[in-house]
């Protein structure tokens, strides 16, 4: 199945029963898949909204009613959703947002890129909030992380973003689909709105005119994010035990880097790969562990360098970090990265 189809099927199996989307390449297959899948479900809703902005607000309504809800788009569309994501975060509402990154900024192009890392991991909208961001690299991970995204969203009552890209979404790969979940047997949501029938009426809002009250809301969110950061640290380490240089890359860039690591290993260069899977919270603890044995890091991104900052932050100066990037939708080859590792490339 194509990556986009895998996400769609996994979402349905995760009990997602509301999807609102809008056409944008390269994620259309996901929107189309959800249309077909929801049509077959009695309790499923698919809406092609009039804009990505309307779509995220429909998800907000569905989520406030207690339904597992998802929307997806690609870079420019995700920018349109930022206000809605800020509202979801402020109102402790769960939701899953899939960003199939493409070349940018502006209209950019439709080939894969990783230029939205900051937007995703720093809370892309207004206000002091963060979103859980998961970075899959394979079709299997698209399936597993989509299921996980819905569980995280409900558990922490916050939006979760799946950061994939145009290549991953289009690429066909086998994937074992997780077992389906019955939405009726999901943990109850006592906070949801379904009409004050025999109970006091409830309000879900984010307006707090009194600054002292709003401060408390901010600290509540901050404590939630501390808890999430403590509990979610996901990364893959590949051939790092005896490595002398570690490549740090996620998603499609990591697949390319893994090819490069194997290539230089054949020539006796001891390289390894550190692949963050939870992009926010960044897997600092695991990277620090790796840093105990290795000092040299080469960060490779399909951008002009964003995650590299989190690597530097995590290492706190205890490692020298080089960066190599190819923005704009250019997809490097393992050979190219292998040469970068061997130091042949100038722009390092």
């Amino acid at each position: 199945m194509s990556g986009n189809h895998v996400i769609g099927e996994a979402a349905i199996r995760a009990g997602c029963r509301f999807y609102a989307g809008y056409p944008i390449t390269p994620q259309n297959e996901l929107t189309e898949y959800m249309a077909g899948a929801m049509a077959k479900l009695k309790d499923g809703t698919f809406i092609q909204a009039e804009s990505e902005l309307a779509a995220i607000n429909m998800v907000l309504g569905a989520s406030a009613a207690g339904c597992r809800a998802m929307t997806s788009s690609s870079s420019p569309g995700i920018s349109l959703k930022q206000e809605g994501i800020s509202f979801l975060s402020a109102m402790d509402l769960p939701a899953v947002i899939v960003n199939c990154m493409r070349g940018g900024p502006g209209l950019g192009n439709i080939s894969p890129s990783q230029g939205d890392y900051f937007q995703a991991t720093r809370g892309g909208g207004h206000g002091d909030y963060r979103n859980i961001v998961l970075g899959p690299a394979t079709a299997q991970e698209l399936a597993d992380l989509t299921m996980l995204a819905f569980d995280y969203a409900d558990k922490y009552r916050t939006p979760v973003m799946i950061l994939q890209d145009g290549m991953m979404g289009q690429m066909m790969e086998p994937a074992v689909m997780p077992d389906p979940v019955d939405p009726k047997r999901l943990p109850p949501k006592p906070w949801k709105l379904d009409g004050a029938d025999g109970r006091p009426s409830r309000i879900i809002k984010s307006l707090y005119l009194d600054p002292a009250e709003e401060e408390q809301i901010n600290w509540n969110l901050a404590h939630k994010y501390e808890k999430i950061t403590d509990e979610i640290q996901r990364a893959e380490t590949y051939r790092t035990d005896d490595a002398q240089i570690i490549i740090v890359a996620y998603g499609t860039a990591a697949r390319i880097a893994k090819g490069a690591v194997n290539r230089v290993r054949e020539k006796g260069v001891k390289a390894g790969l550190f692949r963050p899977i939870s992009l926010w919270p960044f897997p600092t603890r695991i990277l620090k562990e790796v840093n105990k044995k290795v000092k040299d890091f080469l960060v490779f991104e399909m951008s002009t360098g964003q995650m590299v900052e989190d690597v530097r932050l995590s290492l706190e100066g205890k490692g020298n970090v080089r960066f190599y990037g190819r923005p704009g939708g250019v997809v490097s080859t393992p050979i190219e990265i292998a040469e970068v590792i061997e130091g042949k490339f100038g722009r390092v």
């Binding site: 607000n57 309504g61 206000e83 409830r202 309000i203 809002k205 984010s206 307006l207």
Partner: peptide
């Protein structure tokens, strides 16, 4: 029961509900 919408987005939130 009330859920607040961003400025201008009430119709979309209501659709989801």
């Amino acid at each position: 029961d009330m859920v607040e919408a961003a400025h201008g987005r009430a119709a979309a939130v209501a659709t989801g509900l």
